[in-house]
Design a binder for these strands. Sequence first.
DNA 1: GACTGTGAAAAGTTTCACAGCT
DNA 2: AGCTGTGAAACTTTTCACAGTC
Lengths: 222, 222
Amino acid sequence: MPSNPDDSPPLIGGPLVAVEVPEVVVSRLPQYVRILSQLLDDGVEVTNSQHLGEKLQVTPAQIRKDLSYFGRFGKQGRGYRVRHLLTELKQILGLDSEWNVAVVGVGRLGNAILNYPGFNPDGFHLVAAFDSNPGRVGQAVGGVSVQPMGAMADTVATRNITIAIVAVPSADTQSVIDQLVHCGVRAILNYAPINAQVPEGVWVRNIDPVLALQSMTYYLTD
Amino acid sequence: MPSNPDDSPPLIGGPLVAVEVPEVVVSRLPQYVRILSQLLDDGVEVTNSQHLGEKLQVTPAQIRKDLSYFGRFGKQGRGYRVRHLLTELKQILGLDSEWNVAVVGVGRLGNAILNYPGFNPDGFHLVAAFDSNPGRVGQAVGGVSVQPMGAMADTVATRNITIAIVAVPSADTQSVIDQLVHCGVRAILNYAPINAQVPEGVWVRNIDPVLALQSMTYYLTD
DNA sequence: GACTGTGAAAAGTTTCACAGCT
DNA sequence: AGCTGTGAAACTTTTCACAGTC
């Protein structure tokens, strides 16, 4: 029996190409969204890859290439209609939906996060907070009432929470993330200085100011 | 007069190769430092690229390649002596020195940063704070007395500050960074959601939790 | 036998350059 | 004329695979 010379499955009426979008491209889209939102606020109706590139400090070619993974949003000779491109990109990123977010750990950092006004305008709603310290349970922080860890499974399910922000001590972080994943959370923003392990299909981003500082000192030692 | 066929300067007794270390490699070193510090704390004396790779979730080959840009720190058949490799990497990154850091902007976020205990153990000392709001000047936050913006030039010079953490509103960020650069600051950790422009030789890293969340929602829209 | 260090190959990413549409 | 969208080229980064050392 002759084997298939290429390793792709036979395509019968399916898409001719199923190009996987590189992760680095996806990671740049939110920046495009941010700039486009600003342009819209400033009343700019049309832009182009040159202009966007200047704002973002990337080459125009990169912007065109990035966008080309998702469709043809521009008009040759004209550029991009700001409102249209913004709508499309938000849809691609899922930013046309609202996302319910849980905060785990309501220490100093968790407090600051719950009181930070920058998440809601972007469609992220901090709707629940959990803490293992009974002394903090019941407190209202940033308009949210702190719940015990035991309430997590129930609250995550009923409030339709898919994203969590974890601001607990490093030693507790992996176990908290395990619990969250078990409850169905699929994206985690982790503030502890550790690399947590998660199963396939769960996403983690780390916020790590010390690492950021340490990656600059190399260039300061002249 | 014959021109030099290659464009490198004539090497007379200099290094045979002056390989530029890729920035991505430098950005990984702090993570190696962190893991090695942990291993040292745990009493582990020897490790190897396989073991480090598991902890960091990267391939052993990448670790060996990364390290090879800076020297030969291991022993074939044995691996790496934890204490030795840690010392070397800290030195390469400039983490054997202490760094004086200024915080600009003492709102809610600046407050949290000044009170965050995680910088000092890594050799970053928050020694000055500035705010444009006269109502905040003179307050002591996290053991540091808040100074007016006008004191920046003087304090940066006398306290030998090369790094700044900027936590001011987006609209003020570029101008604050311009001032810092003018005062001689060469590395900036920026918490505002904008891409600041800086001259050659100045480094910026952004802390942007919203961008991090937005780069995950793409994968949640099933 | 076990591991590093490293050229070479493979994979991934960016930039170029231009056909083609408005 | 002015710009996009895109294959192809250039460049960067990762991974392989193995000679060499302990």
